[in-house]
Design a protein around this nucleic acid. Sequence first.
DNA 1: GCGTGTGAACACCTTCACAGCA
DNA 2: TGCTGTGAAGGTGTTCACACGC
Lengths: 222, 222
Amino acid sequence: MTLPDPVPEATIERLPSYLRALDDLLAHGRSTASSQELADAAGIQPALLRRDLSHFGSLGTRGVGYDLTTLRAELGHHVGTEESWPLVIVGAGNLGSALARQFSRPPFRVVAIVDSDERLHGQRRGGVLVSPQRELGRLVAQTGAVIGVIAVTAEAAQDVCDGLVAAGLHSLLSFAPVGLHVPADVHLRRVDLAQELSVLAYHESHRRTEGHPGDQRPEAVR
Amino acid sequence: MTLPDPVPEATIERLPSYLRALDDLLAHGRSTASSQELADAAGIQPALLRRDLSHFGSLGTRGVGYDLTTLRAELGHHVGTEESWPLVIVGAGNLGSALARQFSRPPFRVVAIVDSDERLHGQRRGGVLVSPQRELGRLVAQTGAVIGVIAVTAEAAQDVCDGLVAAGLHSLLSFAPVGLHVPADVHLRRVDLAQELSVLAYHESHRRTEGHPGDQRPEAVR
DNA sequence: GCGTGTGAACACCTTCACAGCA
DNA sequence: TGCTGTGAAGGTGTTCACACGC
């Protein structure tokens, strides 16, 4: 109705970069910018930025560029930066603890942390109490958490995932190094740190072996 | 020479999943498996797994499947799991500290951690001393680190990145929420935690708004 | 017969290049 | 004239479906 076509996933993934670029330019006192300038700030090609923005309507002015304040508001509205997103983190180990602090800034806030290790219960992580894992359902209902973060071992991950889905969550971010199964209406994203390192190791293994000098990619990465 | 075509990046990114699937099946006492079984274990389509493996030669046997030990050895060789990869981590904050522990398992090992905050110098993170950031070059040379991990603020990231490149590293993993610029022969991968959450927030924002029931994706995620 | 390996079709994403509007 | 918005082309990745070899 409001949007003509379904915004491509690849575009959605770039919106945070665009918001950062907009904030940067606004902080420098700019009020308008061309796709060229915005793309430079975001580290991509101008044509791609224009195509991405076009999915949200005609936000620019031909011959002029984009009004930064208007664009910022429009994109922010779509990403939901105006709202505040309550998170629940499962796992208060090294990673979970770091995430508890990392994720405690607008538009996100950590409203609950649970762990199966009862020695951690009652401790705080970034100001939030660690609760027993069996209270997960009650906590989600009570706090209204809408995004679940899975920071537990590969073995425990599927159970935790099922628990979060059963608690009514539809958006999950997993750091566990396993493929998780979720119902079709649940959005699951994975961050696999070991995988990232492995990809680098792969390329490093092949640097001298098959590294034709000059067949690499362009300079900027997002 | 040895490999006919350049292995697609997407394939390389799936190799860690395949290694995990292989280890799982081997741990269950299996010695052979079909692409169907392997794909199930990795959470993908059989055809995709066959296509991926085909880039490394004819590793299976028609009518039978794949020999798990052989395949494990072959893939491990390509990913470089036989070697041990020394990492240097820049930034000993919440995230850097968690990563120092997270990344201290084969085939990776943390050989150095640096931070610009001198109050952290001399402390330990997962058994490794935190050193002054200005010693980065010397430490890389001394320890032979080949992969650099950037766990600093967005503002400091480009400087740190330049420092790691100047120190001779060609493989970098950045957790800073900015687009970094590197020379063409450097492999840079980014993990943007805020971006992951933002994508979930985007979908959550649109769950009721435009959520046609039934236009979602299949069940497994890798 | 069975399951791999792969040509061909398909889907998605990015880049090019330019028409069209301020 | 200058820059957006976009049709068309190009590229990359995935799925289909079947010929081929064990």
